Computed example of a mutant assay.
Amino acid sequence: MLVCYVPALVAVLASFGVPGAVDGARAQLLSAALAVHFLKRVLEVLFVHRYSGSMPLATALLISSSYLFIGVAMIYVQHLSYNLPEPAVNLLYPGLLVFAVGITGNFYHHYLLSRLRDGGGGDDKGYKIPRGGLFELVACPHYLFEIIGFFGLAMMSQTVYALTVAFGSAVYLACRSSATRRWYASKFEEFPARVKALVPYVW
């Protein structure tokens, strides 16, 4: 999983050393938020996540390329928009707050997932129904908060590209959440019907 995230982290950090790449407060805060996003993922790989299987190298390289492109392209598009008029409504700092909520909630629920394999109580492979936090209401709150984080980045950037990334991520993670909820429901007879896929009380 380090192969997936480290290249994007290195590229985002390198942008601070490229003259003109992060001119202005918006570009600097966006690049810093992206660096925090990928650094968090690297640290989670090292210290939080517990993996039950392996990933083919080709898949890891594909994912790595996607994250690398997203990070670099978001910074580059922000660079291209530097001399354009500022938006009528500045969402930079509200976006920073939304991003902080997203990344914090995502980390907390990843931490709860990492504790599932401590002790017994699951099936023969150690699978359990997640408990605590928003797991009481949705199957994948970590995906919900990741979506919130991406929309926070889009608010900070206020570019069409960043908004497209946020919407694309939301659709992808919504599909994964739906599949995860169906898996839990098929695996555990006691899986609560009240638990939705992604959005509490809604879906």
Rank of each mutant, 00 (worst) to 15 (best):
M1W: 09
T164K: 00
Y172S: 11
K187L: 13
L116P: 13
T59G: 00
S54E: 15
H49P: 03
P7T: 04
L173K: 01
S157R: 02
D123G: 09
P56T: 04
L29P: 08
G126R: 11
C140M: 11
V6S: 08
V171F: 15
Y67T: 07
P130L: 02
L198D: 04
V195E: 06
V48H: 08
K40T: 08
G168I: 14
V45P: 04
S52H: 13
V42E: 02
E146I: 14
P141V: 11
H109R: 01
L198A: 01
L137G: 07
S114D: 00
Y127A: 06
Y108M: 13
L43Q: 11
Y111F: 14
P19W: 02
L29Y: 15
P192D: 11
F69P: 03
L46I: 12
S54D: 15
L57D: 12
E86A: 14
G121K: 09
S157G: 12
K196Q: 14
R41A: 08
A14V: 08
S114V: 00
L39Q: 05
K125Y: 14
L9G: 06
F107M: 11
A21N: 01
N106A: 13
Y172Q: 13
M1N: 07
L112K: 00
V89Y: 11
G17H: 05
V98C: 05
A14F: 08
N90W: 01
V89R: 06
A14P: 06
L57C: 12
P19M: 00
G122E: 10
F47C: 11
Y161N: 02
C140E: 09
L198F: 09
W183N: 08
G102N: 07
Y184R: 06
E189V: 10
T59A: 09
G17F: 14
A33C: 15
L62Y: 08
R41G: 09
G133K: 06
Q78W: 07
K196H: 13
Y67M: 12
L137V: 13
V12R: 01
L96R: 01
S157A: 15
G24M: 04
I70H: 01
Y5K: 04
V12K: 01
E190K: 15
L61F: 07
S15W: 07
K187E: 12
S178Q: 14
L46S: 06
Y51K: 06
I129V: 15
V89N: 04
L116C: 11
S186I: 05
E146T: 14
Y201Q: 03
V45E: 14
L97H: 00
K187S: 14
S178R: 14
L2E: 11
P85K: 03
L2W: 13
I70D: 00
A100Y: 02
A170H: 07
A88V: 13
F47V: 12
P130V: 01
S114W: 07
V48Y: 00
F151H: 03
V6Y: 12
R41H: 15
G120E: 15
G119Q: 02
M155R: 06
D118L: 14
K40C: 05
G20D: 03
V195H: 07
C4P: 03
Y127D: 08
K128I: 06
S64M: 09
D118N: 12
S157Q: 04
F38R: 02
V89W: 14
R117N: 02
G120C: 07
Q78K: 04
G121S: 05
R41E: 07
R181V: 11
Q28C: 10
L39G: 13
A162I: 00
